[in-house]
Design a protein around this nucleic acid. Structure first.
Lengths: 111, 111
DNA sequence: CATCGCTATCTTGCAAAGCAAAGTATAGTC
DNA sequence: GACTATACTTTGCTTTGCAAGATAGCGATG
């Protein structure tokens, strides 16, 4: 699986993380694996953890610390109402961008 | 037509401009209109012109200056081989990102 | 002729976001 | 004890979108 260039991920990643957390409480390390499984590539810790902290400051997510049987404590995140609202703002913009690009790709295909 | 947040555009815009220029020689001002028609929203001049200059420095595009009947000279851009190669690198990454996001949206839809 | 509005490009400086790198710490394996 | 996997944090760099302002040619209105 090729790596998605960082510049392409900009902005999209926050939306993606919010949507994954919206599926059910998770923690940073697991999010990294989930992103890889979904096809986002190997997103580095240095990207994910600062983003989670920022989203927590913005009240989009909340954290609860729980011990783990296989290592240090985990910070489990869940969505807040603000986080849900962020997803509701993000998705239409994302879809608009995808639609615009699809028009361009369609043109390309007709040549 | 809503405005696409700047963070979402990051990286995508360069690919989009290259693809539009690939359809046929154009200039900055016209690119702005084309982007709007495609659904990218009103991308400001302060975004487009610096990007075009950067792509020119990177040899992805080349410019020819022509006078206009309705205003100042226009700089018409066309793709170079490097530019074509950039598109060939960009498109798979873009499609991978779209596919990954589609998986997430699909999950959401099943809830 | 002066002003306005449309066309057309360039430059400066700031903000946001991805990420490499380094640090800290726990649990299990060799 | 060393190493590996797990798990989170912080610092500083780089890229990119963009607001704001400058420059300039053209046509129409007054």
């Amino acid at each position: 699986m090729a790596k998605i260039p960082s510049q392409l991920l900009k902005g999209t990643l926050e939306g993606a993380l919010l949507m994954i957390i919206g599926r059910g409480e998770t923690y940073g390390y697991a999010l990294q694996e989930t992103l890889a499984e979904l096809g986002f590539g190997q997103v580095p810790e240095g990207t994910i953890y600062p983003l989670l902290l920022k989203m927590q400051r913005n009240k989009q997510i909340e954290a609860v610390r729980h011990p783990s049987a296989s290592g240090p404590d985990r910070k489990y995140y869940h969505l807040t109402a603000t986080g849900e609202a962020s997803i509701a703002e993000f998705l239409p913009s994302w879809r608009q961008l995808v639609a615009a690009m699809a028009r361009l790709e369609g043109d390309k295909g007709n040549e």
